[in-house]
Structure formats: structure tokens, C-alpha cells
Design a protein around this nucleic acid. Structure first.
Ligand code: FES
Ligand code: FES
Lengths: 141, 141
DNA sequence: TATAAACCTGACTAATTTAGTCAAGTATAT
DNA sequence: ATATACTTGACTAAATTAGTCAGGTTTATA
């Protein structure tokens, strides 16, 4: 089970954005340089974040992105959802009555994986961008 | 983040094994048929489980595998560890002082991913094979 | 003692996914 | 005007996964 770079970068970039989110929009170029993430890749990521209304874009010179909500209201769940970083523990379609391996019913471990998926998603639902900035700030005192 | 088939199958197969683990060893052929997992793939998986002393093999006709410990003492952690299904949330080497993207220090979100990794591993450390069989039994009453 | 069931091992491969790159735009402050 | 910065879509190399395949070796039992 591993976290992909897309998800990791999305959160990294938003923490960066939130930290520098004073009055001016933050350009992807700056985030790219500060966090060492490819600019082209960031563009893909922010395009998705914008579509899900997590950030707002400001075009032209001095442009960039700003948060579209309060940091407190942006949960990891929202971020991951926006960039399609989903937690997937089962192979079977969840809605379907069929099990994995094309079986006619759910397998012996299906409930376990469901439980695991919830356990992980809980973590994401609890953590907000604000929490992350705070942690980050406190660590630096 | 997704769970791979190898990990899912390893647990599935062991639950099956534990359920039929009366006196006789259980053959991979039987597990393969009951759970719909490729026999060749199961062989790879059980080879690893045996090396980590989670199961014991009995060769020859009427052979198969038996649990090498009590179901209570086999945790998901042990199973996943045996088949190299590891939880990996960070990109950087954990021991190293360097961060991801080859940076000189840990990134803004490193602590978060560490926390996530622990959160997931906790789940695996708590669940034993016995728990799984029990759940499975109770559901069928 | 021949045979078949079952474990054992290593190499190979197709398909998928990831982690980007690249190219060609459009909008806007100065 | 022009440079900065967002916007979009297509493309690709590398890595990983989920197996398959081809050979073994061991041992109960007829
Ligand atoms: S994981 Fe859902 S049926 Fe196996
Ligand atoms: S995840 Fe460890 S430094 Fe970024």
C-alpha cells in the first residue's frame, strides 16, 4: 500500500500555499522551487484542485492561486478526492453483489478490507489544512 | 493508496487455511479452487509465508500447509511483512536526514505521512487471524 | 517400486499505473 | 507590447503488479 506522489504533492503544495497565502496569490513557480516539484506536474494538480473549488486562480502577471476556503474547512479527504488519490482496499465493485475474482458472493476477507478502508479514511476526514500548518508552526518554535 | 492482490490473497488464503486447519494439512490446490486464486501465484505467496515461519509445509501426497503458530498469534502485520506488502507513505528514506526530492531536510508534510503510516500499521498490529475467523463465523450464524 | 499428488524455485511477461514531459495555447498587470 | 503565469490535452518512460511457465523434488500409497 503506498501513497502516490500526486497525493503527497497536492498536500505539500497546499500547505505551502496556505503558509504564504497572505494577500497575494502564490505562483506555482514559487511552489515548484520551494518544494522541488515539477512545474508541469503542479499544473495538472492545481487544475484539479481548482475544478473542485479548493483553490482559486488569478491569471496574468502577479497571478497565482489562493485558497478558496478557510484552511480549517479543507480536509485531506477533500484534497485527495480532488486529485483522485483514492483509498482502495477491495478489488470487487463495492456496490455489486459479486465478489472479487468474479465470484458470486463476497470473499472471506471483504469485511476486513472495508473496515481498513474506513479506518484510513477516518484519518483523512479528521485532518484539516489548518492542523498541518499549526503542527508545522509549532515544530519550529 | 491501494492494497495489492498479493497482500489481499495472502490473508484470504490464510483465513481459508485456518478454517480448514483441523488435523490434515490443506493443499494449495484446495485453497486455489475455493478462493479462486491462481495456484502458481499461491505457491509464490506460501513460499514466503513458510520462510517467515507463519506456515509449515508437508510434502508429498496428502501434503499441504498447516499454521505454524496459533491463529491468535498471527497478526496482519506478520502476514504483510512476510509477503512484502508494506505501507509506504513517504518517498524519502526514513533513516536518512535527507527529504524527498533529494532535498537537504524533511519536507513540510513528512510528519503527517509518518503519522498516517503509524495509523495504518496500528490496524494491522491489532488484527489477528483468530479475529478474522471469529468475525467470519459470527456473520454466518 | 512406479506413480501421482503436492510442494519448491526461478525466470519470464503482459498489463497497468505512475510520474512525469511537452506543446500550444489564453489572460492580464505593467 | 510583453513577460508572467494560468490552461489544456496529448504523449511517454519507468516502475510495479499480477500473474504464467517450466522445470524441478519429496513422499504416501497401490
Ligand atoms: S474484496 Fe470484496 S469480495 Fe473479495
Ligand atoms: S516525505 Fe519525507 S521528506 Fe517529504
Amino acid at each position: 500500500m503506498k501513497l502516490t506522489s500526486k497525493g503527497r504533492y497536492a498536500v505539500m503544495a497546499l500547505v505551502d500555499l496556505a503558509k504564504f497565502n497572505s494577500i497575494n496569490p502564490v505562483s506555482l513557480r514559487d511552489i515548484s522551487l520551494r518544494q522541488g516539484i515539477s512545474l508541469d506536474y503542479l499544473e495538472q494538480i492545481f487544475s484539479k484542485l481548482r475544478k473542485k473549488e479548493i483553490v482559486q486562480s488569478v491569471r496574468g502577471i502577479q497571478g497565482g492561486y489562493v485558497l478558496n476556503k478557510k484552511a480549517k474547512e479543507i480536509k485531506l479527504t477533500n484534497i485527495f478526492d480532488a486529485v483522485d488519490e483514492k483509498v482502495k482496499t477491495v478489488q470487487c465493485k463495492k456496490e455489486s453483489k459479486k465478489g472479487c475474482n468474479g465470484r458470486s458472493s463476497k470473499c472471506l476477507t471483504h469485511d476486513l478490507w472495508d473496515e481498513l478502508e474506513n479506518h484510513i479514511n477516518n484519518f483523512f476526514e479528521k485532518k484539516s489544512l489548518e492542523d498541518l500548518i499549526k503542527d508545522n508552526f509549532e515544530r519550529r518554535i
